[in-house]
């Protein structure tokens, strides 16, 4: 797998499309345990990302990821803006100076995204947040390094989906959902769901093109 700037922009476009297609789904999840704006906010952020592609075509993958981060911070309008924004900024910093993203960069990228999200949101595993999707993906990437998985993409997508599903029985400890206390149990966390959509879109793209 090798991803240069052109492929990265295509990948980001797939992510934006996936978020747009699932805008209502994310908002429904957020209506149950939050403030019903997650789909709208994420779509606004990723459409703004798409609108800036023209200015990014000559930039490195690192610069593009940082551009995505600052765009999300300024255009999402909810907590997911600074959270995903910091994740993308941190990923950009993790591959500073590289012209291409290779398979061995994926684990450091995941680690950087997680560190950024934790720095900004102060959440831990099991708090019913996007981290519950992303931490298992990091673990899947890390075990892939030790070998022999026939379909790495499937393993990563499975980890993301199971991570997202794992938020359903959890009591929310962060964000608006935590106001609901026990009533947050039984619902998938919207942030865990958007993280799953982003990872699945990225995996689908990489399987086809990289």
């Amino acid at each position: 797998m090798v991803v240069g700037s052109t492929e990265l922009l295509h990948l980001l476009e797939k992510i934006a499309d996936r978020i747009e297609e699932n805008k209502e789904y994310l908002t429904e999840l957020d209506l149950a345990i939050g403030d019903a704006d997650h789909g709208l906010n994420m779509d606004r952020g990723f459409q703004a990302v798409k609108a800036r592609f023209g200015g990014w075509s000559t930039q490195t993958p690192s610069q593009i990821l940082k551009g995505v981060g600052s765009t999300l911070v300024s255009t999402v309008g909810g907590a997911s803006g600074p959270l995903y924004g910091t994740a993308f900024l941190s990923m950009g910093q993790a591959i500073d100076g590289k012209e291409r993203i290779a398979s061995e960069d994926l684990l450091p990228l995941a680690e950087a995204a997680i560190a950024g999200i934790i720095k900004r949101g102060k959440a831990s595993a099991g708090d019913k947040t996007m981290l519950d999707t992303i931490l298992p993906v990091r673990d899947a990437l890390s075990s892939l390094l030790y070998g022999g998985e026939a379909d790495a993409g499937a393993a990563i997508a499975k980890a993301a989906r199971e991570g997202m599903e794992s938020t359903k029985p959890l009591l929310a400890l962060k964000g608006r959902a935590s106001f609901l206390k026990e009533r947050s149990i039984g619902h998938i966390d919207p942030g865990a769901a958007s993280a799953c959509l982003i990872i699945e879109a990225a995996v689908d793209f990489l399987r086809e093109h990289a």
Binding site: G77, G78, A79, S80, P82, R120, G121, G175
Partner: peptide, 10 residues
């Protein structure tokens, strides 16, 4: 609360 804190910190 929430995003107000995270955005201000950003």
């Amino acid at each position: 609360l929430g995003s107000a804190v995270l955005t201000a910190e950003s």
